[in-house]
Write a protein that binds this DNA or RNA. Sequence first.
RNA 1: GCGAAAGUGGCGGAAUUGGUAGACGCGCAGGAUUCAGGUUCCUGUGGGCGCAAGCCUGUGGGGGUUCGACUCCCCCCUUUCGCACCA
Length: 949
Amino acid sequence: MTARTYDFKSIESKWQAVWQQRNTFRALDPGDPGFDGSKKKFYVLDMFPYPSGAGLHVGHPLGYIATDIVARYRRMQGYNVLHPMGFDAFGLPAEQYAIEHGVHPREATATNIANMRRQLKALGLSYDWDRELSTTEVDYYRWTQWIFLQLYNSYVDPRDQKAHPVAELEQRLRSGELGLDAEGQPVAAAEAATRFAELAERDQRAAIDGQRLAYLAEVAVNWCPALGTVLANEEVTDEGRSERGNHPVFRRPLKQWMLRITSYAERLLADLATVDWPESVRALQTNWIGRSEGALCDFEVVGGQDKIRVYTTRPDTLFGATYMVLAPEHPLVKVLTTAEQKTDVEAYCLAASRRSEVDRQAETKSKTGVFSGAYAINPVNAERIPVWIADYVLMGYGTGAIMAVPAHDQRDFEFAKQFELPVRVVVEPTKAWLEEQFAGQTDGRTRYLADPKQLDQAFAGQGCAVNSANPEVSLDGLETSEAKRTITAWLAEKGLGRAKVNYKLRDWLFSRQRYWGEPFPILHHAAGYTLGVSDQDLPVLLPEMSDFSPTTTDNPEPTLSRAAESWREVTVDGVVYQRELNTMPQWAGSCWYYLRFIDPKNRERFVDRQKERYWMGANGIDLYVGGVEHANLHLLYARFWHKVLYDLGHVSTAEPFGRLFNQGYILADYYEDARGVRVPADEVQYDSAGGELIAAYEVSKAEPGGKFLYQGQEVFRKSGKMGKSLKNVVNPDDLYQSHGCDTLRLYEMYMGPVETSKPWNTRDIVGVHRFLLRVWRNFFDIDSGELLVSDEAPSDELTRALHKTIKRVTDDMDRMRFNTAIAALIELNNQLVSVDRVPRSVADAFVLMLAPIAPHICEELWQALGHNQSLACEPWPSYDEALLADAMINIVVQIKGKTRGNVSVPAEATEEEIRQIALADEKINKHVEGKTIRKVIYVPGRLINIVAT
RNA sequence: GCGAAAGUGGCGGAAUUGGUAGACGCGCAGGAUUCAGGUUCCUGUGGGCGCAAGCCUGUGGGGGUUCGACUCCCCCCUUUCGCACCA
């Protein structure tokens, strides 16, 4: 026998090699030899990463380790586990990196992927690497293009709110079943203003194109000259800068591809109730979708043909509308403005268009606007009210025009005060509100009604309508909800308006002017119409270009416009077309990767139907783990695509992610110098007054007089999310070297619950490392290398401890509370220290329980215990309820609710017996002496509370 | 402003349905082993009073419900995150 220490480096590389050679974690699909269809499936997925040049820091793998533990645990429970990994490699970060380093994005991406794959493999994650994919592979983006074509070739039928092939729509229009209404929307022939067949071909095309889920539109976009591309609203910060790179962003009109996600707003909202997601994410999406119920109402313009259509959630306040406002970009602005106001209005609109979002933000205090010179007629009381132009009304929401009810809307109220417009109260404020406004004085109502402008607040709450009647309809005395119904019905009856549900969610701006993305499978005809590339002509390859850097000018121009003409021009059936030159945004590839993992090599379909049905099962992905930052973008976009695919019959579930779980962030100290410049955290030292310099991470709390120093200069400690920008990253590669990846895995899980954010403390790692060392010493005599395991049966006490641990760990695994699972294993292990030789049954179970969390050391121990198969699919230990019970139990004794001690009693003792024993205890009895026992509360097996006074 | 989550020792965090607050780990203190450092092992460790037995106090603050509250209810404070002129 030779010495045998815990040599984690060789153990870890040995087992990683074994898993790879034996293909231990390969998931079998339906149809594969050896596939067992009787096993339940479990699809556990990480949000796949961007392969950034910086590689992983210890904050990234938190979620990966958690899902790996779940995957390993489920395998041991006999599930067929699908646990894949891939890379989201198209998009701005990859391209920026490539430009900065002067290499082609394809090369940069390949290098970065290789590095990240190495780092992931070094963590011992049990992915089925045969399924690895990258969104940039031709074989992958071919299907991204195919799905885009599904969107392009689909429309939503209002009857069932589902996607159908555009061909169906065309057929129904051609047959005369449908016609077009005044706005060009398809309607039943009976209600139609125009028959489709009567239209010119070009208008027919326009009518159909206007219904597609992917369509071209001239929209005000967020143009970022520095990045040379447009950005989705979601990619622009509050300050009007790009989320990536923090460059200025400007609004300008541009023809772009849009995806009609708004058609799915209602289902995206409603189906949130069907998924097992964190409440916070559901709230976030609900908020983002922003459903509101209200009414559309038309206001005639005095002396013109035009009508101003407004959307309001408070139609009950229509009688209080004293002016109207159009957004500066509203098409009627040019039409309505009178000659004498023209100069002012044009100046205002120009200024508004030039103002960046930053300026708008800075001026929230005062509202700006200009009178158009025009008047409109309030349809409920025929009153002439002025039409103003102001940028507090947004073109992108509702109709871009509002009726202003200054008495009952804070924004209108502020505007009315500023421009001295009338304020008319049409909803009786509540008593509570009046009291608050008038500081409890009793004459508040009278004073308010005399002059509502004296206050700083408008009454925007619900109440009884007043001053709201015309000869045909009266709202007076009605509660807000009733008043809304009444007036909406009246408007509908008179043809002046109708009820309308509105959403904050906008259609998804889907094109980018950059190089590194999926080319659109779209061709443009010189006559101005578009054509989808046919399936057999896919993929549309991204052309090779030597200069792929963006054009950073004010004039948006896609990089692909500089591609070779041979790529840009395509001849189909003898007709020459130009290729679409935009590329798809980052999010495209991540919208469906979870489906491709199911069948990554399929050349016939994006995913095999049978495999899709098996792995997506009833609830889709069984566990999807990632950061909460994707709540509104990726998760909404992917749900949208999935629903379209579902409607078209390509996938079997209505929702892709049955259960979502958000991991927290890893926080870490960072350091700033006096000017606020961040310095590398790992080079900061601590100078305890008078003492020697030590590494800053060794210091949990700075003493008075202690200083943090960087290159001799004092710096200041702060805490934030670990990341490049705070210069406080900890590289996992260093930790594999010093402690091993089992220790890293254990530490990250032991820090706290996976879902909470928690600070990294390199200092604490030693704790879990000691645990593994102690485990090792419990199994081996370090000096002789002898295995310290016996074939004897464990003592009753140890058996009980084992079964309790199995129960605790199993429960914790189910709840994903790995921190407490580890604590339970540490406790059991500490108990084993005092056992000379660990009974084999205890040793086996212990190793199996620790295996999902620290798989390498456990495989090594498992082998040492004489098993020649990997433990990856060994059955998870089970516990015997009967063995959990102690013969003697501890009962807490309380007197009047205060704990005064505890007594040990036989497990089967009755309440009366326990009471006798408790009162016989001198320490307890002294609190009862001389008092009358009023009441005794007994919680079986736990506690007895004697109430004595 | 709206929405969501969270406040427990020096630190990370425990505490299934209300039932011994502080499991487990770090750190710290004392001791043993060691030439020494490290490692390992043992003991202690919320605060206050006390030689001790013990007593008091304690989960952001203030009320309440209860035999009993970190846990339930009301009010307030703080922090973090998301949205934000969305009519």
